[in-house]
Design a protein around this nucleic acid. Sequence first.
DNA 1: TGAGTGATCGTA
DNA 2: ACGATCACTCAC
Length: 167
Amino acid sequence: MKRLGYKFFHRPCLEVARELVGKVLVHETEKGILTMRISETEAYCGEGDTACHAHKGRTARTEVLYAQAGTVYVYLCYGIHWLLNIVTGEKEQPEAVLIRACVDAPGPGRLTKAMGITGAFNRENVCDGKLWIADDGYACNVRTDKRVGIAYASEEDQARLWRFILE
DNA sequence: TGAGTGATCGTA
DNA sequence: ACGATCACTCAC
């Protein structure tokens, strides 16, 4: 399997989010290699997107979103669940793709649990770390829908079809 | 449908 | 320092 590199992630987050569906999430652990096919993603597109964590600018937490493409952003949600994102686009531009589900692991909190992903991966990079994305040539259809759990965002941003789902 | 859970950030 | 908020999940 081929590891996706900087070039793949150094593009607009909507493109990356769509193309990540069907790719394979890989975690090389001490006990072996865990792999799961990504079945759902969401795009969070910069300070202008009121659903994006960085829409109010830089903070200690959102600083990682301004890093170069391929950087991993993992944060704790509701005090329980680790959520996995990958930074995309230009450096200093806070865009990222949330990995929302894998085949056999529906839900962003469940897939990180299944893959053994925690906050320890925050600020790592999928281009050179133990956590990476592989392209195994799998082809599929992708449909879109509204993003989930962003009631705090503007109505306009809530309506955007920035969620990508494996058919 | 609602409780649990704790980091984060704005307000002092 | 305090309190509201939260890109979720599971049990009822």
